[in-house]
Structure formats: structure tokens, C-alpha cells
Nucleic acid binder design. Structure first.
Length: 561
RNA sequence: GCCCCCUUAGCGCAGAGGAUAGCGCAACUGCCUUCUAAGCAGUGGGUCGCAGGUUCGAAUCCUGCAGGGGGCGCCA
């Protein structure tokens, strides 16, 4: 990455200055390479001279930061990406990228193609991203779309950063909610055949249950009414689960999401892993008995003040019991180096307990990251649409995608940091207007494609000579190249913060940079074939950058609009 | 009561301890016989919730306070 090259050059300059005794030999500070806000402060800058200044002052040496900066700057080799080096302000060293180097990057980008922007941060580390996990009791309500989009985009970004990533959906099919679902399903199924069978008091009221009953009746007839109710419910359970998961998969596909694995909670019990892990914790003294129940003694661990029931006094395990086994399975059985769980803020209380679980299992808690995201308020006709799965008055992910389109949903839910609450206005999102920055970005991509097509039609893309990138000297051309080269850093940032919202802002910036170039520089011009060739290559690079950014966000890159 | 998150332009939001705090929308003024006007250029708009502190330097870190949201179950 460019930043690393700059950092290396500065480090080299520092040691060179020390070796020639121009700078006293003290421990070098970590070199921060910053991106100045103002263009005339250069492409990169470092404050290392000011840090050194205070270190040297304390050690009784001459400590004028500007003088130190000058010493360091004198030793920075002006080659490769580094062009002009200047001292400014209280002691900043400002570094401008060299035009000739920038120009050469156009070809590099085009050659990289869809690999452009990829970096090697992960070094092949094996990560899991688990997102959208839910009870398989019906369609996922719209708020889940944020979870799904966040997790899926993070997975994309991690892959681009050199991680091996597994995408997982945890199916909570072992808990009480799922039993209630099965009982409700039985009732709806019986009702379908005219029986007077009431839905359980805490059952699922949603209309979608009628659809499941209908499907079961179509596929299996009334055979489940020819047996005791308990047996029928037991047999309907896995069938109902399959129906729900099929439907979920369809919904999620509308957002462009494919999971590598749908992991069933029940499988942890079937394999005896829950018992095994509880025994293990008991042997370590992390399990205690109180009020007839078994508790995980989480309060023994930092930041947790409460213990947590794992086996109820009625003998039934809690969700938390299988969750411990689940994470044991992730780290110890399957060997992920790192796991990212995407949860809504309403699960925040569970976070410190999971850290305790990690420690209790002998794992470094830092290997588990839980990304909490705020909830989504759906606005229609200026009013909040209430989401309640139990009451059945839900709007599903699929419905919203059908209404406003997957691209608008993904982009809008990605623009804000995870911790924010999002008010998603359906009426606005449905408009294909400039209210939707996603169209701005896509339009820019389509425009490039149109230019490339026009050049093709006029035979300008068949120029025999390789494009001469040194012809790209216009400020808008160089600004566009600079913006394109930011992609690596944007990916790095998204990974480090485990938050990809910066990509939406970058996409808009990149589109604006292209639009400025388009305004200032005529690309297809038969009277200037050499310049056209160079600009066409730059346009191609811009298309690659925009398409890559959109691809990371799971948003389509249309060739015409 | 305790814990977590949020508070930046009229609205919605970015801001990796750095220099003159940005983007979109809305408002106002211009630009389509020209490669896509779903676009472009320009203008106005700010005590970065409040008060202290740390630092050469704070929207950013620390403490307190206020307002908003969430969480504190033998639910998930």
C-alpha cells in the first residue's frame, strides 16, 4: 500500500538522519502517516517531527519541530510515489505524490481489473462472519436487512483484504420459540382441514403461517391428523423448519446474499456437544447450582455482574447453553482464527457474557468481535411502521426489496455507522431520484460504460499504440487517479473498524471525481487519438474502481441507465 | 438505580489526536444543437449538546452534567 511505502520512506529518512549525526539517537516514535484535509497540504503528511520534538526536548536536545522536520525531509528520497516534500505549519512534513508515478498507476489499475483494491491484511487468516441468525419461525422482518447487509458486506471486504471468510447463518431451532412455532404450525395445519384447533396463546399470529400449512397440506395431505398430536408436532417440526429456511434463503437471495453454511442449533445437542462443553466448564469450576438450576458463573469474569442460567430448574437448557457450545465449535472444532457476530443492539447485554465464555473456554476474547448495530425504523407516509413478529404484522426483507430494489436497500442501510439508528423512508427510497445516492454512483458507472461504448463504435479503442499515460496532466485527471488509489485504504479502514459505511461515502466521492473529469476532459475525440487513448484507459480504470466498490457493497454496476 | 450507544449546518449523516470541520438533501443563482442533465458550477448556512481536564495541538481522549435511544428474564 502507498501509505506503507511512505511510512517506510520516512522511517528510512529518520535513521539516515540519525546515522549522519544530524539527529540525536533516541528511540523512534511510531510514524503516523496522515491524510491531510486540504489538498495543498499534500497527499500524505506526518507529524513525526513534532513528536520527536517533544521527545528531544525532554532529553535536553535541540527540539524545534520545523528544524527536525527539515532534517527528516532532506533524507526522504524523492522516488517512486513520492514527489515534492514540504515542511509546513508547526512541523508537519507534507508529501505530494509524483505526477509521473500517478500516471503510471492507471495502467496498473486496468491490469489488476477486478482484483484492484485488494490488499493483504488478512494473510489468509480464516474468519467467520455470522449474520442475520434467527429462530426459523417465519420470514425475517425488515430490520434484519441491516444485519444481513452489514454482515455480507463485511464478509466481502474481508475477502478483499486477504482473509478466508465463511458466511454463516445460525438457525435457532432448539429453543422454546421453535416449539411454539411447531405447535402453531400444527394448529394452522389442522384448521386447514377444518378442525377446530386453536393457536397456542403465545403462538405465531402471522398470516405466513397459513402459507406453510397450505404447503404442508399440499405435500403431505392430512396424514399428520391421523396420529397423536404430540407425534404430529414432532414430525411437523423439521418439515416446517425446511419450509422456513427455504423461504429465508429466497428472501436473502433478493439481497444478493448466499451463505456458506446454515448451522443448526439442534445439531449441537444431537452431537452431544452442549453436554460435553458444560461438563468441561463444570470441571473448571465455572458452573454452579442455585435454586435448582445450573448457572454459568459469568460474574467471575471482568465486566460481568450476573451469572447466567444454562440449565433451567425444569432440566431444559437455555439458549445460552448452546451458544457456549456453538462458540466452542467455531473456535475449537472448526478452528476459525477470528469470528465476527453481527447482532442488533437489543442483544448488547449478551456481549460481556460472551467474552467471559471465551475466557472460560481458554480462548482469547479478542478473537471474537461482536458488531452491534442500531435498529431500523421503517417510515411510510411519514409514519413509523411498527414491526412485531409475534403479532404477525411484519414487513419482510423481501417485501421491502420488492418495493424499492435491492441496490437502494443495501446502499441506504450501509451509509451510516452501525451504532446509529436508521430511519428508512420507503417513499423516498422508492424514488429513483437524487435522494438516492446509489443512483448517483450507478449513473456514473453507466456513463463511463457509455463513453467506452462510444469509443468502441468510433474505433478509438483499437489504437495500436499503448496509451501514453503521461498525457494525463489535467488537474481533474490527476485528482481522479488519486481518488482511485484511495480504494485500498478504504478497504483497510472498513476492516480495521469492522464497519463498511465508509465505502458508500467513497463511492460517491469517486463518482464525483469521475464526473469532474468528464466535465473537464473530452474523452472521445477523433482529432486527438493519443490523448483519447490515455483518457479511455483512465475511464476504464475509473469504471473498475467504481464497479469494485459497488461489488464490495453487493450493489449492481449497470452498464446503462 | 446500574450498564452501553448517540448528540456536528434547517433535515439526514461523514469525520484514523493534527493545520481553514466536510458530504448529501432542502434553499437560492446559473448551465442541455456538445462523450448520458439520474449531471455540473456557484451562494448562503456551525458556540461540533453543556462544563471542566489531559496535550505543543481535542469534534476526536478522560471526568461530570443534560437530552434521546437501548439493555439489565430459569426469553432469544
Amino acid at each position: 500500500m502507498i501509505r506503507d511505502q511512505i511510512r517506510a520512506a520516512i522511517a528510512h529518512a529518520l535513521t539516515a538522519a540519525q546515522r549522519s549525526s544530524l539527529l540525536p539517537t533516541v528511540d523512534l516514535p511510531t510514524i503516523e502517516v496522515l491524510r491531510p484535509k486540504q489538498a495543498d497540504h499534500g497527499d500524505y503528511s506526518t507529524n513525526v517531527a513534532m513528536i520527536m520534538g517533544s521527545t528531544l526536548r525532554k532529553a535536553g536536545h535541540a527540539s524545534n519541530p520545523r528544524a527536525i522536520a527539515q532534517l527528516i525531509a532532506n533524507h526522504i528520497p524523492a522516488d517512486g510515489p513520492i514527489g515534492r516534500v514540504e515542511i509546513a505549519g508547526p512541523g508537519f512534513i507534507n508529501i505530494h505524490l509524483a505526477d509521473t508515478w500517478l500516471q503510471r498507476q492507471v495502467e496498473t489499475i486496468v491490469q489488476a481489473g477486478d482484483q484492484f483494491g485488494n490488499i493483504d491484511l488478512g494473510n489468509g487468516a480464516y474468519w467467520q462472519v455470522e449474520y442475520l441468525s434467527a429462530n426459523p419461525t417465519g420470514p425475517v422482518h425488515y430490520g434484519g436487512a441491516r444485519n444481513a447487509v452489514l454482515g455480507d458486506t463485511l464478509a466481502n471486504v474481508l475477502e478483499a483484504a486477504g482473509y478466508r471468510v465463511q458466511r454463516e447463518f445460525y438457525v435457532n431451532d432448539a429453543g422454546n420459540q421453535f416449539n411454539i412455532f411447531a405447535a402453531t404450525l400444527y394448529a394452522r395445519y389442522a384448521q386447514h382441514f377444518g378442525h377446530d384447533e386453536a393457536i397456542p396463546a403465545d403462538g405465531y399470529q402471522g398470516e405466513y403461517m397459513l402459507g406453510y400449512a397450505q404447503t404442508l397440506a399440499d405435500r403431505y395431505g392430512d396424514r399428520f391428523l391421523q396420529m397423536p398430536k404430540a407425534d404430529a408436532i414432532a414430525q411437523l417440526k423439521p418439515l416446517g423448519e425446511e419450509l422456513v429456511l427455504e423461504a429465508l434463503q429466497q428472501e436473502v437471495r433478493k439481497l444478493g446474499i448466499e451463505y456458506d453454511q446454515w448451522f443448526r442449533e439442534q445439531s449441537l445437542y444431537d452431537r452431544g456437544l452442549v453436554q460435553e462443553v458444560l461438563d468441561l466448564l463444570r470441571a473448571k469450576g465455572d458452573i454452579g447450582e442455585r435454586d435448582g438450576a445450573l448457572w454459568f458463573l459469568a460474574s467471575h469474569y471482568p465486566k460481568v455482574d450476573k451469572d447466567e442460567v444454562v440449565i433451567r430448574s425444569n432440566g431444559a437448557p437455555t439458549y445460552f447453553a448452546s451458544d457456549i457450545a456453538y462458540h466452542y465449535d467455531k473456535f475449537i472444532v472448526r478452528g476459525f482464527d477470528h469470528v465476527v457476530n453481527i447482532w442488533g443492539v437489543d442483544h448488547q447485554g449478551h456481549v460481556p457474557r460472551m467474552a467471559a465464555v471465551m475466557t472460560a473456554l481458554g480462548l482469547d476474547p479478542a478473537r471474537l468481535t461482536i458488531v452491534l448495530h442500531g435498529l431500523v425504523k421503517l417510515i411510510r407516509n411519514g409514519q413509523e411502521v411498527k414491526l412485531s413478529k409475534r403479532r404477525g404484522a411484519i414487513i419482510t426483507i423481501g417485501e421491502v426489496v420488492d418495493e424499492v430494489g435491492a441496490d437502494a436497500v443495501r446502499f441506504n442501510l450501509l451509509t451510516r455507522g452501525p451504532e446509529s439508528t436508521i430511519e428508512f423512508d420507503l417513499d423516498l427510497a422508492a424514488q429513483t431520484s437524487n435522494e438516492n445516492p446509489v443512483y448517483f454512483v450507478q449513473y456514473s458507472h453507466a456513463r463511463i460504460c457509455s463513453i467506452l461504448a462510444k469509443a468502441e463504435a468510433e474505433g478509438l479503442r483499437n489504437v495500436a499504440v499503448t496509451p501514453d499515460s503521461t498525457l494525463l496532466t489535467h488537474a481533474s485527471e490527476l485528482a481522479l487517479i488519486r481518488k482511485l488509489l484511495e480504494l485500498e485504504e478504504q478497504i483497510e479502514m472498513a476492516v480495521e473498524k469492522l464497519s463498511p459505511h465508509n465505502l458508500t461515502h467513497y463511492a460517491v466521492d469517486l463518482a464525483k471525481s469521475f464526473n469532474a473529469f468528464y466535465r473537464d476532459c473530452k474523452v472521445v475525440d477523433a482529432t486527438e487519438p493519443a490523448l483519447s487513448a490515455a483518457r479511455l484507459q483512465l475511464s476504464q480504470a475509473a469504471r473498475i474502481g467504481l464497479a469494485k466498490t459497488l461489488q464490495l457493497m453487493g450493489i449492481s454496476a449497470p452498464t446503462s441507465m
